[in-house]
Amino acid sequence: MRCETRLYNALNDRMRRSHGVAASQYEFLRYLRDHPDTRVGDLAAFFAIGVGATSKGMDRLEGRGLVRRVPDPADRRSSLLELTDTGTQLVHEADETFGAIGALIQTALDPARLHDAAQTLRQLLTALEHDRIGTPAG
């Protein structure tokens, strides 16, 4: 846990300093870039966080002009989230900062161990998601 926390804090500090967003906000924005037609519930499910917290996070990003809500043509009670041009540009610029954390990890582990660690973490995440372990109740 300490290792993950230190890496996340390093990324968070770099994202705030270089792009004015928290690491979690960058993750939301990157997901929206890569998954068009996303709803708040989709984000909440993917990131295993509550719908209320996700909606508040989108409100903040919308207030900064990085995200907009558009009517869902398939369900008039729902909205889809999409990046604005400003949000798209920010994600593009922040991708390089995110990559710097990968370089930090690569300097600490030799390539074979890095590959094994990544594979192990993918397997663990798949098992946790399959069994819905760590999914918030609300």
Rank of each mutant, 00 (worst) to 15 (best):
D34M: 09
F46S: 03
G65M: 06
E27G: 01
Q123T: 10
D116W: 14
E93V: 11
F28N: 01
H19Y: 01
T107C: 07
H35K: 06
P36M: 12
M15P: 04
F46R: 06
V91N: 13
R60D: 14
Q89H: 12
H115R: 07
R30T: 00
D72W: 11
L7A: 02
D75H: 09
L81D: 04
Q106K: 13
R16D: 04
S18P: 09
E82P: 11
E96Q: 10
L109W: 15
Y8C: 03
L83I: 04
E129S: 08
L43P: 01
L109D: 10
S18C: 14
T135Y: 08
H92L: 08
G57N: 09
A118Q: 05
F46D: 01
H92Y: 12
E82C: 15
V21K: 00
R113V: 07
R132L: 15
T120W: 03
A137T: 13
L11H: 00
R2Q: 07
R30Q: 01
R2P: 00
H35Y: 00
D131V: 11
L81C: 05
L83P: 03
M1D: 03
G63C: 09
L90D: 04
D42H: 07
N9S: 14
S79W: 04
E96G: 04
T84E: 00
R60S: 11
T135N: 02
L61N: 00
P36N: 03
A53S: 07
R60C: 02
P71T: 12
T84G: 04
R69K: 09
A137Y: 10
G63V: 02
R2K: 08
T120I: 11
R39D: 00
Q25K: 01
G41V: 05
R68P: 05
M1R: 07
F98V: 01
L32I: 08
P73Q: 14
E4C: 14
M15F: 03
A127F: 05
M15N: 04
L29C: 02
D37T: 04
F28Y: 08
A100V: 14
G65V: 04
